[in-house]
Design a protein around this nucleic acid. Sequence first.
DNA 1: GCATGATCATGC
DNA 2: GCATGATCATGC
Length: 463
Amino acid sequence: MTECDLTSADSIIEFAKKLKYQTLRQACGEEIEKHGYRGKGNFGQILEKFYFGYEPNSESEPDFKEAGIELKSSPLKILKNGEFRSKERLVLNIINYLEVHKEDFETSSFWKKNAHLLLVFYLHESDQDLLDYIIKLVDHWHYPKEDLKIIKQDWEYINQKIKDGKAHELSEGDTFYLGACTKGSTALKSFRNQPFNEKQAKQRAYSLKQGYVNHIIANIAQEETAVYGKIIERPEILDKVLSIEEVVILKFHPFYGKSAEQIEQELGLNINQKTKSYFANLTNAILGLELGQRIEEFEKADIQVKTIRLKENSLPKEDISFPTFEYQKLIETDWEDSDFKNLLESKFFFVFYQFEGDNLILRKVRFWNMPHSDILEAKKVWKKMVKTVLNGEIVKAITDNGVRKTYFPKKTENRISHVRPHARNAADTFDLPIADKLTGLTKYTKHCFWLNASYVKNEIYLQ
DNA sequence: GCATGATCATGC
DNA sequence: GCATGATCATGC
């Protein structure tokens, strides 16, 4: 018996908040036993069935139909400083390619279902039964109006791509807060027909980006420690023809062709050129932020900001590095769930400076995400890397001066990406799941995937 | 001059 | 102690 009026939003929210600091076992243990629970189902299903006492609804209506509330549960991780972060993106309803192209945002299946969310965040512990996860945060969520404008633009971008017969080329990096993420990852059956192209498209769902969920969490937990600044102070600007991309690019335009030093002067800044965050500070200042503020819109959209210094021939001075990978994790994770794919599917913001002698001149900025066909090409690098580790064939040879030649994917083998060391020194290692056949090594220098400088020049800077 | 492997510097 | 951006060394 629920002590909750399932037709009243207030009643539902109030009842849900009683879950705080409890586990599912504590909150609905008896109910679960009565129904002969066998460990099947996910956190959300158990919550619906055994706490709220209803069977999951049809796909097109919100879970609590009369109250217009959609229930979502999602895992948290905890940082060293004790703050909560979302463990992943928040997956919403599946995109029905055959229907959505007929919809408008305001009457869309997405908006009907997800306008008002009830969120239950629990602390995920990999060694625990999900019945024992502790629920940390519970609250409902209405999108602030400035967020909603961006979400609507995102929704429309996704819809346009479907109308253009490009559902199979959708990518999370296409959009800002609302993404189109893959769902039903591994199975071949997760392919769907699309209305304007014979090619089948991977099944995808609307999702809130991990960064956006982090902001929801910070809001609910009311423990915002960082100082944020907004690029778009008056959301009305997005009612004009302007997208957030256009707003940002317009802010940079006046500084094209100027040196970093000139820009500093014109903005009346006094920042230390030696500091590591020099270019980040410059970028923030151009966007109108105070020193030390973090860019709210970029964080919500999981945008990777990369400042590139081009040589006089327009080739980036360096390849672009990504975080190091653990060999063990690499081989036990599918491509669909891999960190590398996740990275390549995110949105990037490139700021290009070019050397003129010792001066760095701002050339241009660009929002970018990797085209679908290139992601498939970069996947080959990942695949080869996995195979190399699985085979235990790491070191090809050792030169006279002790330098190791490896079997890792090289820059010359792939247009887009390669693998190179990224470590403190040779002793800075991760474990190898399979010992190297030649040397017997069971640990190896930390490596990461890199974007080739030539790719950045040809496919991002010159485009 | 570039590809590849190795390492450094800084900031949290 | 570690992540990240940056740079160095060697050999072809």
